[in-house]
């Protein structure tokens, strides 16, 4: 199970990679393993902002569908367009090319309150 040390994590199995004033958000290796083959990532292309705890889209795997929950609140800067044609990037490279959304950070405390790698590991019972 790959759980990179440098990332932050949400209870809902998202990872958050801080880059200056914004962060990339994706789903963890554990989450993609549980979902299985991802076939569609459904996010409103006009989505402007996300609100902590709210669903901002869905991720469809062959067997199941799962909501994407915002790990913090902020303005949406970019949605990974590559996923439209290659949703399987979430399976093959969950922490890299399979990132999902880039969101501005307004309140750093929200990020700091997220799980670190050790806590996330505990969270998934590893």
């Amino acid at each position: 199970m790959n759980i990179p040390e440098k990332l932050r994590y949400s209870d809902d199995h998202e990872w958050i990679k801080v880059e200056d004033n914004s962060a990339l958000i994706g789903i963890t290796d554990y989450a993609q393993g549980e979902l299985g083959d991802v076939v569609f990532v459904d996010i409103d292309p006009d989505l402007e902002s996300i609100t902590k705890g709210d669903s901002f889209g869905t991720i469809e795997a062959v067997k199941t569908v799962s909501d994407l929950f915002a790990p913090y609140s902020g303005k949406v800067l970019e949605i990974n367009e590559k996923l439209a044609d290659e949703p399987q990037l979430i399976n093959t490279d969950p922490y890299g090319e399979g990132w999902i959304i880039k969101v501005e950070i307004t309140d750093l405390a929200e990020i700091e309150n997220l799980l670190d790698a050790a806590k996330y590991k505990e969270h998934i019972g590893q």
Binding site: G36, D37, V62, K63, Q88, N91
Partner: peptide
């Protein structure tokens, strides 16, 4: 077993 390498 529901899945080995992946459904697809």
């Amino acid at each position: 077993p529901i899945q080995y390498s992946g459904i697809i």
